[in-house]
Design a protein around this nucleic acid. Structure first.
Length: 914
RNA sequence: GGGUGAUUAGCUCAGCUGGUUUAGAGCACCUGCCUUACAAGCAGGGGGUCAUAGGUUCGAAUCCUAUAUUACCCA
């Protein structure tokens, strides 16, 4: 069967993925082997595959496949995250299009819609991961809102509440007026924007001629002012302290207070205090026991407490109040300035500080544990520098309590019940329990009122933050809170691969929950032996950016379509492209070009093209092998000698590379590892080995030689498999008939054997000489096919080299020579070049341009002269000789001696030319 | 405003513990090849004051300080 000249990834990829699934190769059950566990960072259930996922999951797949080949019990758990805000927003929008309002249909009906939607569209992303080749254990697919994982959330909530680590409190929060929910600080994105600073006059109540000017960005909130604050040392306002002023427009009287918080230099040095609508003002208000006047509705409109502009949106009100203030003569001036304004990560709405009752996790003890875990090296970060960011976040003075309640329905409902009769406030009695019945028992016990029934209780309306379920992911995917059997085997997981942007949202919190809960779930011996951490290492990927360095995002439309890329280049090609410029932690500038006309991103990539070309190269190497005729007759001729040399040499090179690869895998330098394998295959295997063993035109290849070549090829396919699984599996099967279950995906990673370093050096010289001869051919326009004669200077080294079995024959083959012999004389009328320290003389059948030759030699002589003098300078420096380590000094001496030998040779050659 | 990183060839990046690196790769570029596996290829080549200025050291792309540019994190 003859193969097409180009590798066709499309059919091949589906074929093999289905086959692997059919053979259940990705499924893991606990056994006696060492586990290699990876949990996927669960993508949003609403998500579609983007470049970040491609990178992230390619890396995980490489690690998992490598572990599988290395004989470990590899288990990669996939799943999705319910992503409360994002998904709820999507479902709300969808319902709105159908004319249904969330509030009208009620909680249960809404959740039905949401689940229906999730069942229909959720998990698309998981199917897309299959196209990438992700070797996840799909039987273990989990979802953060499925019953078992929700139970874990409730369990942990109750547990932490009982430990006094969760509390309910009235706090200033970041409110999203569009999603109508509170946000955690981390969900607020600050953006630098143009804003205006309004200078407003507040007139004294005791003297209508005196006024104080304040500067504010938010004039629409003046109706909520409760005081003006100045710095106690501010000379300008000493006479104002203790007096009162009228709020413009509404003429409510408010006091002027002194507080050192006020920045004398900012604005006018006087600050309006609006506790309901500013975090800092709230703190000052509390300190000075000032009232709180909240003039905004949850969706950001002015309420009746504002008394004017009621019903208007905050931004509309800002415009309108400007006119009113002007008319009232209260507006002194407006200044432009730059400030950063918080936006909701999900809806992009400008967040509103809002006072509300929320649930919090006390983070101080957690932070300490999490910081210590990484500091001590129990959890390792790659790259290490990520620790700085981690530390600055977890430091005691930076850590904030985690607000975990969200005013949404899509998520785990907070397991807290209140008495219906009580006013909703901080002091309200609360019964935290897994079920309503348990809560009722508590209520009866605590109130002493035995007649209470479920009807007297009301469950908290809110759900917990999504991250409150995903922080349990490494435990809950194994149902660890229910049954410790699996987790005892799989925990701790090996490595977490994620972007650094969710280091705080997720990574830090998983470390916290891991140390908090795994000791309760696993026995002490196991913990002592394996550790309590959720993962031993974290590999942080960079953000994927476009060629203008913008983060690739759906909203910018600057991300190529991941699936279209796979269509264009094959999954292997895309995996190659995505990985090859992705050192850990570094942002990746993905090279997809933009259409110059439409400015739309194209689904093209030079790097992916390189990956595709690599597949094609492999494919053609296979075609070469398959095209050879085979002979059983063994001849002890030159070809045989070459084949033996090539065989031993490639074996040495593979072993040498395996050592390097292991080091690169251990330190997670995967893009380097890929390049290493790429070069081994393209340069060593294809360009040198195959060319060496290639029989002359029309001649057959010896059976043994072909078998050796196939064995090498097969080994290389195993080594490349983690990076490019599809093409390697295909070639693996094309190479020879396979028994049932004899597949590349479950082949055995080669063990490292001793290898002959001298042989590698000898072949290096062979390559060097060959390249030099080819260059001379190029320069003198000598045809590749024309056979030439080569002499080499007699020396111990050249003598040994040329007498290694196969070298001479190999050199004749690669350099197209009819004769190679040693000489003690300078050979005239030849082109001289250096190989190592020795001189080589190439006889060419055209007249040599003496001037040109001289020029070439002079250039080389100059290079070595400069080189020698720099080494000499070093060596004659006494301080160097005295303080540098002996081996460095010896190396320098060797460098000098080699340089001098080379220089001498070149000078002689130059003299010969006359 | 506080912090962290980056700056190496036209582009995208390696270069780990300072010394076999007067700096490597891929792409792009130049020259020559449709050579019987592969033009998605082969053979060869050119191209860098390692951002700038100081310093430490026998020795600096690598360590330190400052500056510039740039990206991000936090408020």
């Amino acid at each position: 069967m003859s193969l097409s000249a180009r590798y066709q990834p499309q059919e091949t990829e589906t074929k093999w993925y289905d086959y692997w699934l059919k053979k259940n190769y990705f499924h893991s059950e606990p056994d006696e082997r060492e586990p290699f566990t990876v949990v996927i960072p669960p993508p949003n259930v609403t998500g579609v595959l983007h470049m970040g996922h491609m990178l992230n999951n390619t890396i995980q797949d490489i690690l998992v496949r490598k572990a599988r080949l290395s004989g470990k019990n590899a288990c990669w758990v996939p799943g999705t995250d319910h992503a409360s805000i994002a998904t709820e927003a999507k479902v709300v929008r969808l319902l709105r299009e159908q004319g249904i309002k969330k509030g009208d249909i009620g909680r249960d009906a809404f959740l039905e819609h949401a689940f229906a939607w999730k069942d229909k569209y959720g998990g698309i992303i998981l199917d897309q991961l299959k196209r990438l080749g992700a070797s996840c254990d799909w039987e273990r697919t989990r979802f953060t809102m499925e019953p078992s994982l929700s139970d874990a959330v409730l369990h942990v909530f109750v547990n932490l509440y009982e430990k006094g680590r969760i509390y309910r409190g009235l706090r200033m929060t970041q409110w999203d007026p569009e999603a109508l929910t509170v946000l955690s600080n981390e969900e607020v994105i600050y953006k630098e924007e143009n804003a205006r600073l309004f200078h407003l006059k507040y007139y004294r109540t005791d003297n209508p001629d005196l006024f104080i000017t304040i500067a504010t960005q938010r004039p629409e909130t003046i109706m909520a002012d409760v005081a003006i604050a100045v710095h106690p040392q501010d000379e300008r306002y000493q006479s104002f302290i203790g007096k009162s002023v009228f709020v413009p427009l509404i003429n409510r009287e408010i006091p002027i207070i002194a507080d050192a918080y006020v920045d004398i230099a900012f604005g006018t040095g006087a600050l309006k205090i609006t506790p309901a609508h500013d975090q800092n003002d709230y703190e000052i208000g509390k300190k000075h026991k000032l009232p709180v006047i909240d003039i905004l509705t949850p969706n950001g409109k002015l309420n009746e407490k504002a008394t004017i502009l009621v019903g208007q949106d905050r931004f509309e009100a800002r415009k309108n109040i400007k006119k009113l203030l002007e008319e009232a003569g209260a507006l002194e001036k407006i200044e432009d300035y730059r400030t950063s304004i918080g936006h909701s990560e999900r809806t992009d709405a400008v967040v509103e500080p809002r006072l509300s009752l929320q649930w919090y996790v006390d983070m101080k003890p957690f932070a300490k544990t999490a910081l210590e875990a990484v500091k001590s090296g129990e959890v390792k970060f790659y790259p290490e520098s990520m620790f700085n960011m981690y530390q600055s976040w977890l430091q005691e003075d930076n850590i904030r309590d985690w607000c975990i309640s969200r005013q949404l329905w899509w998520g785990q409902r907070i397991p807290a019940w209140f008495l219906k009769t009580e006013e909703e406030d901080e002091n309200q009695q609360v019964f935290v329990a897994k079920t309503a019945d348990d809560a009722l028992k508590q209520a009866i016990e605590k109130t002493g009122n035995a007649s209470l029934t479920l009807a007297d209780l009301k469950q908290d309306e809110d759900v917990v933050d999504t991250w409150f379920s995903s922080w349990l992911w490494p435990i809950s995917v194994f149902d660890g809170f229910k049954d410790p059997k699996e987790i005892a085997y799989y925990y701790p997981t090996q490595v977490l691969v994620t972007g650094w942007d969710i280091m705080f949202f997720w990574v830090a919190r998983m470390i916290m929950s891991g140390y908090e809960f795994s000791p309760e779930l696993l026995d002490a011996v196991k913990i002592k032996e394996k550790g309590a951490m959720p993962f031993k290492a974290v590999y942080y990927t960079g953000m994927v950016r476009d060629n203008k360095r913008r983060k690739m995002s759906k909203s910018l439309g600057n991300s190529p379509d991941a699936l279209a890329l796979i269509d264009n280049y094959g999954a292997d090609g895309v995996r190659f492209g995505v990985l090859s410029s992705a050192a850990a932690g570094n942002d990746i500038i993905f090279d997809a070009p933009f259409d110059p006309k439409t400015q739309e991103v194209l689904n093209e990539s030079k790097l992916c093209e390189q990956g595709r070309n690599f597949c094609n190269k492999l494919w053609n190497a296979l075609r070469l092998l398959q095209g050879w005729e085979v002979t059983e007759i063994e001849k002890n001729d030159g070809d045989h000698a070459i084949a033996e040399l090539a065989n031993q040499w490639l074996d040495a090179r593979i072993n040498q590379t395996l050592v390097l690869l292991q080091d690169q895998f251990n330190s997670y330098r995967l893009s380097e590892a890929l390049i290493t394998v790429y070069k081994l295959i393209w340069d060593d295997f294809c360009s040198w080995y195959l060319e060496l063993i290639k029989p002359a035109y029309g001649e057959p290849i010896q059976k043994k030689v072909l078998e050796q070549a196939i064995a090498h090829f097969e080994k290389l396919m195993t080594i490349l498999h983690p990076f490019m699984p599809f093409v390697t599996e295909e070639i693996w099967h094309q190479l020879k008939q396979r028994a049932e279950g004899e597949d590349c995906v479950v082949s055995v990673w080669p063990t490292v054997n001793e290898y002959d370093k001298l042989l590698i050096a000898d072949v290096d010289l062979l390559k060097l000489v060959t390249t030099s001869v080819r260059e001379i051919r190029n320069n003198h326009q000598i045809k590749m096919k024309e056979e030439l004669t080569l002499y080499l200077q007699q020396s111990i080294l050249t003598n040994q080299w040329l007498h290694r079995k196969g070298i001479k024959e190999a050199l004749c083959k690669t350099s197209v020579l009819n004769e190679v012999s040693l000489t003690e004389e300078e050979i005239t009328n030849t082109v001289t070049f250096l190989g190592g320290n020795d001189k080589f003389y190439l006889v060419i059948n055209t007249t040599i341009n003496v001037e040109e030759e001289k020029g070439r030699l002079v250039k080389e002589i100059e290079y070595y002269q400069k080189f020698i003098s720099s080494v000499e300078n070093k060596l004659t420096n006494e301080k160097f000789a005295n303080s540098a380590p002996a081996d460095i000094v010896n190396k320098e001496r060797q460098k000098l001696a080699d340089g001098q030998t080379k220089l001498k040779g070149l000078m002689e050659a130059l003299t010969k030319l006359g």
